[in-house]
Computed example of a mutant assay.
Amino acid sequence: MPQFLDRDGTRLAYEHSPGEAPGIVFLGGFKSDMTGTKAVALEDWARRQGRAFLRLDYSGHGQSGGTFEEGSIGRWRDDALAVIANTMPERNLLVGSSMGGWIALLIARDHPDRVGGLVTIAAAPDFTEDGYWAAFSDAQRVELFERGHIAVPSDYGEPYVITRHLIEEGRDQLVLRTPLPLPFPVRMLQGTADADVPQDWAIQLLGHAEGPDLLLTLVKGADHRFSEPAQIDLIERSAADVLSRMT
């Protein structure tokens, strides 16, 4: 059963498994929730290792309160920081999937005292700008500014409602335009058949980030879900590798 934390009147849902530190924090993607295949599989693995584990739903996601349309990258980062501070305030291993990779990078850059290592899975830093905004036509950009939102088709169900606030606030959270120090072990995982996050983004992130122990693994044929058994095994092995190197 989920636990809840009140943050400024919004109930944030999370699942926390106690165990040995450093713990593992799983940060999910855009419109995903904490019951996804990767989050649950990694939690099971952490429990077998006796390792503390945290997964959570941002506001407007899953079992948390609030509405998705009111959200933004900065708000969801702060949701994650609030739950982490409440449950596992030590230096943890962050595992960020898709948008969760961006959020993990923001936390690593701005709150390095919370982070001892990082694993990203199809990380999507700056996707509001380099993905959505860059792909919008002039007509879509006009609609976004005049109406305040636009519906974008999704391969995962209902169209995504992209708001003007999401785009504009996202520009305050970009990580690929300024230095990005990652002074701890980092493992980046990326599928070559990912239709949502191009492998070029992963290569750009690797080239841009600064750190002594950064490794990118490209998995031929893997898509954005990155949830096949062999891919889950790779996530777990990457987490074990980073944990073994954390001090």
Results as ranks from 00 to 15, higher is better:
residue 246 M to S: 06
residue 2 P to S: 11
residue 216 L to A: 05
residue 27 L to F: 08
residue 31 K to E: 15
residue 84 I to D: 08
residue 30 F to P: 01
residue 28 G to R: 02
residue 209 A to M: 04
residue 22 P to D: 05
residue 125 P to M: 03
residue 63 Q to W: 08
residue 82 A to W: 14
residue 91 R to Q: 15
residue 228 E to G: 06
residue 63 Q to S: 10
residue 80 A to E: 04
residue 172 D to F: 09
residue 158 E to N: 14
residue 15 E to I: 06
residue 107 I to N: 00
residue 41 A to K: 00
residue 41 A to T: 01
residue 233 D to E: 15
residue 109 R to A: 07
residue 229 P to N: 04
residue 48 R to C: 11
residue 30 F to I: 02
residue 51 R to F: 06
residue 141 R to C: 05
residue 218 L to N: 04
residue 224 H to W: 09
residue 28 G to I: 12
residue 123 A to V: 10
residue 220 K to A: 04
residue 49 Q to N: 00
residue 235 I to M: 13
residue 155 D to Y: 14
residue 40 V to M: 13
residue 215 L to Q: 04
residue 179 P to Q: 12
residue 22 P to T: 02
residue 70 E to N: 15
residue 139 A to T: 01
residue 35 T to S: 04
residue 229 P to Q: 06
residue 166 L to G: 11
residue 128 T to R: 03
residue 146 E to T: 07
residue 82 A to P: 05
residue 225 R to M: 12
residue 229 P to R: 07
residue 21 A to S: 05
residue 235 I to Q: 03
residue 49 Q to E: 07
residue 246 M to H: 07
residue 127 F to P: 00
residue 77 R to P: 01
residue 240 A to Y: 11
residue 60 G to W: 09
residue 202 A to D: 03
residue 103 I to W: 12
residue 29 G to Y: 14
residue 139 A to Y: 08
residue 71 G to H: 09
residue 188 M to D: 11
residue 24 I to R: 04
residue 220 K to I: 03
residue 165 H to E: 13
residue 129 E to G: 07
residue 111 H to G: 04
residue 77 R to K: 12
residue 77 R to S: 10
residue 180 L to Y: 09
residue 59 S to H: 06
residue 237 R to A: 13
residue 148 G to W: 15
residue 117 G to C: 05
residue 20 E to R: 06
residue 35 T to W: 03
residue 46 A to D: 08
residue 95 V to H: 02
residue 66 G to I: 05
residue 83 V to P: 00
residue 176 L to M: 11
residue 111 H to P: 02
residue 33 D to S: 14
residue 202 A to Q: 02
residue 44 D to C: 08
residue 190 Q to F: 09
residue 134 A to M: 11
residue 163 T to Y: 05
residue 129 E to P: 00
residue 199 Q to W: 08
residue 108 A to Q: 00
residue 214 L to N: 04
residue 122 A to W: 03
residue 27 L to Q: 01
residue 67 T to Q: 13
residue 184 F to W: 12
residue 165 H to K: 14
residue 177 R to V: 13
residue 80 A to V: 12
residue 204 Q to C: 08
residue 102 W to K: 09
residue 44 D to E: 13
residue 9 G to D: 06
residue 119 V to M: 02
residue 210 E to Q: 12
residue 146 E to H: 06
residue 96 G to K: 00
residue 189 L to Y: 13
residue 131 G to T: 06
residue 101 G to A: 11
residue 36 G to D: 12
residue 229 P to S: 05
residue 191 G to H: 04
